[in-house]
Design a protein around this nucleic acid. Structure first.
Length: 629
DNA sequence: GAACCAATAT
DNA sequence: TATATTGGTT
């Protein structure tokens, strides 16, 4: 199309709407605007037409809701495959949809019924795109190896192209710059601009190539490519190919991808996962929708599944002082912290893993009953990273990153899974049936779990050097009033209430065997050092559910022991089910006095793959492992 | 060679 | 702070 005197007369518009009536109306309006209109009521056909006649259309105006292909999908594909302005059309003008449309690259979003006034000016999008592409070509022809007009921070070039990339979502600094420069641009004639451009270009001809600026448009393409490939298969080269942006290098993409992934991993202080995600991707805010789409798996999972997965409430930490070693109280310390890089990484990996999984929603659902020890073992090894060995008995810490929202699961066997506060807490509470001291400790753990502040971040460190802090944490926890001297009456609702405790209902089993975890090491799922291999779903699953698993393991490994109640009940419901099937309080559960042998505990704590040949080694895990972070 | 990551430079 | 570059590793 030549932007000549008659422009926009004859502008070639492809109108897509499954509703023939709407389509006809739209067609008529467009024709009244003297556009050259082509219509189709199928998005797929529209795509075919666009592909076959790549240069035969100037603009696409498409309905959002279509049976054969979502308008957003069409938008995405058009954005990926051809550089055409797309205007979204919908009967719904809610912010989310508009946002999504714009974020995914729609140059405009119109709500039905469309008025001719709105259509009369849609040519501006074509013009803008043309100007933009003209700039690109100009830059490319300069042999600078860069055709991304307005995409580079080079001030002179930016000045030249300023104002053309009017993406509403462009990074603020860029936008500001563009606005400022755009104003100047308006004062110049095209010739003057070219002259100035050439002159300045000469001056900088020897400078190294300009720095790429990942503006909204470029990032949109990037995201579209990533989405297209799937996060786990989104490699720089492939992204580069898909983006099809002249001048863009693999290195550019790699760098951006690196940052992007980093952003995804960044833990957040926000309480909700959605918020976390939103804030973790620098582009996510402007990209909330697409980002959300990309992350939908994780978002959906974390924000909805986890809470339901967790029983809510509390988590316990058993981190008995070394003096308790060998005492009946079992001590597993799970622990983690927000703010440590480990957590962050875990979180990121988790997300990545998650959204590469198409079966996110089913992931957790299947957990309680589908966990397979062998599978775990198979899948675990690659990502596991050894940690410095823990040197004391408490040695069980597992962490992973999560955001603030505290989602805790106290599983039937007293393992506590804290999926909140950037933690994935794996904890084994093994209340000794006849050890009131241990119970005190136990109860205090519960109390502590309520007060998240009582946890010293240091606790989260896996490094054994920080272990003392862990104990401090425990001590702190122990300050909570518990008054527990009798095993069966340790926890009563009243007490819990008094202590402002919220125990998630859970089946409780009290162990009656001495446990010595002095050799127990921290273990963790393989998210940590995914190294791009992203264990993905399985790894993720492991991370999230390791806790739930080992409960299962316990059943696997110590069938003969008590506490083999159906775990699925616990995980499938936010309600706790005590061993005897009622929704008893913790105290009641304790009364069950189901025993869990130390072996059972150990086995359940340690992932099969990690346990490996430790059957007879009695928890002497030579190496510390940590859940990927 | 391509990808990853971390660290560092710009 | 964002992006580029580099070096080591897989």
């Amino acid at each position: 199309m030549v932007v000549g005197d008659r422009f926009p007369v004859g502008m070639r518009v492809l109108a897509v709407d499954d509703d023939k009536t709407c389509l006809t109306v739209l067609e008529n309006l467009l024709r009244k605007c003297q556009y050259n209109v082509t219509t189709t009521n199928q998005a797929i056909k529209a795509l075919e037409m666009l592909r076959k006649n790549r240069n035969k259309f100037d603009l696409v105006i498409s309905d959002v809701n279509m049976p054969d292909m979502d308008g957003f999908k069409l938008l995405e594909l058009v954005g990926l495959e051809m550089d055409l302005p797309v205007i979204m059309l919908s009967g719904y003008g809610d912010k989310e949809r508009v946002m999504r449309g714009v974020i995914q690259g729609a140059c405009d979003y119109l709500t039905k019924p469309v008025r001719i006034e709105e259509l009369q000016n849609i040519w501006q999008h074509v013009l803008r795109r043309r100007i933009d592409s003209k700039d690109k070509n100009k830059t490319a022809s300069e042999g600078k190896g860069c055709s991304m007009a307005g995409k580079f921070a080079n001030e002179e070039k930016a000045r030249y192209m300023a104002g053309e990339c009017s993406q509403a979502m462009a990074p603020k600094n860029n936008t500001d710059q563009n606005i400022k420069l755009g104003q100047k641009r308006k004062e110049l004639s095209e010739d003057e601009e070219e002259e100035e451009y050439d002159k300045e270009n000469e001056e900088h001809s020897n400078q190294k190539k300009p720095r790429l600026v990942w503006d909204a448009e470029l990032h949109r393409k990037f995201l579209a490519a990533v989405n297209h490939l799937g996060i786990d298969k989104a490699f720089p080269k492939r992204i580069l190919d898909l983006m099809n942006v002249e001048g863009l290098t693999r290195e550019n993409v790699a760098s951006h991808l690196q940052k992007y992934r980093l952003g995804l991993r960044k833990p957040t202080q926000q309480p909700s996962m959605v918020a976390a995600l939103g804030s973790s991707d620098p582009y996510l805010q402007m990209d909330s929708v697409e980002g959300f789409r990309t992350l939908s798996g994780s978002v959906g999972m974390l924000s909805t599944t986890l809470p339901s997965y967790a029983s809510g409430g509390v988590f316990c930490r058993l981190n008995p002082p070394s003096g308790l070693r060998g005492v009946n109280s079992a001590l597993f310390q799970p622990v983690l912290s927000q703010n440590n890089s480990m957590s962050a990484k875990a979180f990121g990996n988790m997300q990545l893993s998650m959204f590469s999984a198409n079966q996110t929603s089913s992931l957790l659902q299947g957990i309680p009953t589908s966990i397979d020890a062998n599978k775990f073992q198979q899948n675990r090894s690659p990502g596991i990273r050894k940690l410095s060995p823990l040197d004391d008995s408490s040695g069980f810490k597992v962490s992973s990153g999560f955001s603030d929202t505290r989602a805790t699961v106290i599983n039937p066997n007293n393992f506590v899974h804290d999926l909140s506060n950037n933690h994935l807490l794996l904890q084994r509470n093994s209340p000794p049936a006849q050890n009131s001291g241990a119970f005190r400790n136990h109860s205090s753990l519960g109390a502590a779990s309520v007060n998240t502040q009582s946890f010293d971040p240091g606790i989260c460190e896996l490094d054994h050097n920080r272990h003392n802090k862990s104990w401090q944490g425990t001590t702190q926890i122990s300050k909570f009033p518990t008054n527990t001297s009798a095993v069966s009456k340790v926890f009563t609702h009243d007490q819990l209430a008094q202590n402002n405790l919220k125990f998630s209902s859970s089946t409780f089993c009290s162990g009656n065997s001495p446990v010595d975890f002095s050799s127990t090491r921290a273990i963790a799922p393989p998210l940590e050092d995914a190294r791009g291999k992203l264990q993905s779903q399985e790894g993720l699953l492991e991370n999230i559910l390791l806790a739930s698993c080992y409960t299962q393991h316990q059943s696997w490994e110590s069938d003969k022991r008590g506490c083999n109640k159906d775990m699925s009940q616990t995980f499938n419901s936010t309600k706790s089910v005590s061993p005897n099937g009622d929704t008893s309080s913790l105290g009641h559960s304790l009364d069950q006095n189901n025993s869990v042998s130390s072996e059972g505990i150990g086995a359940s704590l340690v992932n099969p793959s990690i346990t490996q040949s430790n059957e007879g080694a009695k928890y002497d895990y030579a190496d510390g492992w940590r859940i990927g972070v």
